[in-house]
Each structure stands twice: as C-alpha cells, then as structure tokens.
Simulated assay, not measured.
Amino acid sequence: MIKKELTKEDRIKKEINRLKKLYKDMAENTMKKVISLIENAAFMTVTLEDLQDAINKNGTISEYKNGENQYGTKKSPEVEVYNTMIKNHMGIIKQLTDLMPEKPAPKKEDEFIKILKRENNG
C-alpha cells in the first residue's frame, strides 16, 4: 500500500490537533489565549521538518556567483532560516510547556488504611 503524502497544510492541521490534545484539560478561557501559540508551534514544527529534509538533501553549504569571476560558498539559505526558526520554536514550546495543565499528584494511601487492608487480606 502506497502512503499518500500529506500537504503541508494537512500536516500542520494534524500537528495542531496533536498539540490541542495535550491541552484538552486546560480552562477554556486560557485555551483561547494558547491557541495562537499552538498554531505557530505546529507551523514551525512542519516547516522545520521540511527544512531538515532540504538540508539533508542539499547540505549546509551553498555555492554562489557574484558576477563574472566571483565564486564562493556560504551557509545555505535553509540553514539560515532553520537556525532562526528553531530558536523561535523552542521559545514557543517553552511557553506552552509552562502553560501545561498540572496533573493532580497521585494520592498517597494513608498508612492507617494500608494497615487495615493488610489485616483484612490475611
């Protein structure tokens, strides 16, 4: 079976849905504020994946020609964009992580209850 490649928009939507699931327990008024961060994080995640593919395929160095006899190499444009975007992406992920709803701590069984259970079980 050949897997159909998703469009960039579909991949972004899929990532948005994945991130929203992580924040499903968040208060609705807070979620309205966070949705923009989620959408930007999803866009950056997919774009970074595409940039990684391009860098893996084409390398990190580009050749250039500035006129008749001026040749050289420089950092590829994909690397430039990737380096800037990864920093922004990490900032958004940090913000989202800080806003993650806290899970209640597991309740520790009272020692008295444990003793009672042991006595009842034999």
Rank of each mutant, 00 (worst) to 15 (best):
I2F: 07
K3D: 09
E5K: 14
K8N: 07
K8T: 12
E9L: 11
D10C: 02
K13C: 03
K14H: 05
E15Q: 10
E15V: 06
E15G: 01
L19P: 02
K21Q: 05
L22H: 08
M26H: 08
E28W: 00
E28Q: 04
N29A: 02
N29Y: 03
N29E: 02
T30S: 08
M31K: 06
K32V: 10
V34C: 12
V34W: 07
V34E: 11
S36L: 13
L37F: 14
L37D: 15
E39S: 14
E39P: 02
A41F: 05
T45E: 06
T47N: 12
L48E: 07
E49Y: 12
E49W: 12
D50N: 05
Q52E: 11
A54V: 00
I55T: 00
I55S: 01
I55V: 04
N56R: 08
N56F: 09
K57N: 04
N58Q: 06
N58S: 08
G59D: 03
E63R: 15
Y64Q: 04
Y64S: 04
N66E: 09
E68M: 11
E68T: 10
Q70E: 14
Y71T: 13
P77E: 06
V79K: 02
V79Y: 02
V81W: 01
Y82K: 07
N83W: 00
T84E: 12
M85F: 09
I86S: 03
I86A: 02
I86E: 01
K87F: 04
K87T: 13
K87I: 14
N88S: 09
H89K: 07
G91F: 01
I93H: 05
K94M: 07
Q95Y: 02
T97R: 10
T97H: 06
D98Q: 11
M100G: 03
M100N: 04
A105H: 09
A105F: 11
A105Q: 12
A105V: 13
P106A: 09
P106M: 07
K107Y: 00
K108A: 15
E111L: 12
F112K: 15
K114P: 00
K114R: 05
R118Q: 11
E119V: 14
N120F: 11
N121E: 15
G122V: 13
